[in-house]
């Protein structure tokens, strides 16, 4: 057992876990945040995507101990109180989900993608960037629309702020 401490959605947390504990299990079981999902468990589907030190990673393919003392952001950390994050709002507006199982990973991947590309996101780039996230319901079309809309909105907000 090892004491693993990290900053999870802005809050300092700690838990004693086995060294073999995956980050996704630390988040779900030790910290009780079940928004991050386990889909394929083989690094393919992306339902478990979270951000570690600002970068999207698959939390089923990383030990909790590797994220020791890191800043970890999950889907629960995106909204500002009752106000949804622009990407969350865009997924609702554009119906970017059906069953919702892949949605937390899709949204965390989308936020990361928009952070890296800013407002320069076109449909082709979005589809390429979604290679590591699998959705079995939507055919991706509305997910791509939602990400494009959120990227445009966030980039316009940023321009207005400047």
């Amino acid at each position: 057992m090892t004491k693993v401490a990290m900053t999870l959605n802005g809050k300092k947390v700690t838990a004693d876990v086995e060294d073999r504990t995956l980050l996704v299990h630390y988040i779900r079981e030790a910290q009780g945040l079940t928004g991050t999902h386990v889909g394929c468990d083989t690094s393919q589907c992306g339902a478990c995507v979270v951000h570690v030190n600002g970068r999207a990673v698959k939390s089923c393919t990383m030990l909790a101990a590797q994220a020791s003392n890191a800043e970890v952001l999950t889907v629960e950390g995106l909204a500002n109180g009752a106000e949804l994050h622009p990407v969350q709002a865009a997924f609702r507006e554009h119906h970017g989900l059906q069953c919702g199982f892949c949605t937390p990973g899709m949204i965390m991947t989308a936020v990361d993608m928009i952070q890296r590309h800013g407002g320069n996101l076109d449909e082709k780039t979005i589809r390429h960037e979604l290679e590591g996230n699998i959705c079995r319901c939507t055919g991706y079309h509305n997910i791509v629309k939602a990400i494009k809309a959120a990227a445009d909105q966030m980039s316009a907000l940023q321009t207005a702020a400047e």
Binding site: G46, V49, A56, V57, T61, D112, E129, E131, G132
Partner: peptide, 9 residues
């Protein structure tokens, strides 16, 4: 290589 999340690690 892989996908964005894999390339980050």
């Amino acid at each position: 290589i892989g996908d964005p999340a894999v390339r980050h690690m």
